[in-house]
């Protein structure tokens, strides 16, 4: 009896295993948390150096149109106006999302409601494959097909916002589509049958019931696509022209935040203003991805289908 009582209260191999398991898994998760914090910390501390160490005025940085960090302007201030990059980044992102959304929703509707059998069988794997195509491949096709085509139509170099938009449109299309499919699938079938039973046509059902019920998640899908487009570097860099100039139309070379970063970060010296200014661009990228993240969460929270 005493032996059993002792066994029941003494720690055993199992208790030691459990302590070890906890230590292992807690360590792993702690490593990820430390990683995220250090990314945020390092990029932020580099990114603010432009304003703290080099005393650039934040507003001038955001609204200035001249980007030439190596030289000073008439009033002796360095020329670090990031507005051209900001405008271009937002332009390509918004335009790509605007073009891609109707296509993505149409494809998603086709797969869920119009031809669910063939649609899903054929389109699903293709969409999955497209999500997996590396961005340099998109960039390469943009460079060899889209840019020459635009050059042929409009003259000039062919690089610019239009080329960037087209490449990003194709890139975010599968992303938005697969999320839109999830959104539409999440609408319970009885929403559809109830509407059809009331004599509504398929389009009325889609337009008045389906799209409205799925709206928050569809919005999330579009924002996901925008986040991807905003952060995409190489594919855009290959077709945008990489001239840090204010875009005046859709077909002149310009530069996004990401393309400016990838093109120049290797050509500047750590700790100098031209380098710091680039880290400030990275900081904008980081902050925007946080904003996209927040938006997705906010819409996601408000839009859960209650049933």
């Amino acid at each position: 009896m005493d032996d059993i009582q002792h066994k029941l209260t003494a720690p055993s191999k199992a208790s030691r295993e459990d302590v070890m398991g906890r230590i292992i898994s807690y360590t792993c998760i702690a490593a990820i948390i430390i990683l995220v914090i250090s990314i945020l910390y390092f990029i932020t501390s580099r990114g603010v150096a432009t304003f703290t160490a080099n005393h650039v005025n934040l507003w001038q940085f955001l609204s200035g149109k001249e980007w030439n960090p190596g030289t000073l302007n008439a009033s002796g201030q360095p020329q670090v106006g990031a507005l051209p990059m900001i405008v271009t980044s937002f332009s390509v992102t918004i335009l790509a999302a605007l073009v891609a959304t109707p296509f993505a929703i149409a494809v998603a509707l086709f797969m869920t409601d119009i031809a669910p059998k063939n649609g899903a069988k054929f389109l699903q794997p293709v969409i999955e494959l497209l999500v997996g195509i590396p961005s340099v491949v998109y960039g390469f096709i943009g460079l060899t097909v889209v840019v020459p085509f635009i050059r042929h139509l409009f003259g000039g170099t062919g690089s610019g916002i239009l080329a960037g938009t087209i490449v990003l449109f194709v890139m975010v299309l599968p992303t938005i589509t697969s999320l839109a499919v999830d959104a539409l699938k999440a609408v319970p079938t009885y929403f559809r049958s109830a509407s059809l039973a009331l004599g509504a046509t398929r389009f009325q059902t889609i337009y008045k019931v389906l799209l409205r019920a799925a709206m928050p998640r569809l919005l999330t899908a579009v924002i996901f696509g925008m986040a991807r487009a905003f952060g995409e570097a190489l594919a855009v860099q290959m077709v945008i022209g990489n001239a840090a100039l204010m875009p005046h139309n859709l077909v002149t070379p310009t530069s996004t935040l990401t393309s400016q970063l990838t093109t120049n970060i290797g050509n500047t010296i750590m700790g100098t203003l031209p380098n710091n200014a680039l880290w400030s661009l990275a900081l904008i990228l980081l902050l925007m991805s946080l904003v996209f993240n927040l938006l997705i969460r906010y819409i996601g929270k408000r839009g859960e289908i209650k049933s």
């Binding site: 009582q5 029941l8 720690p11 055993s12």
Partner: peptide, 15 residues
Amino acid sequence: YRGTNINSPKVNVYE
């Protein structure tokens, strides 16, 4: 159980 209160935090639940 066997003279031990097994609903005690000290007890080895695996045993």
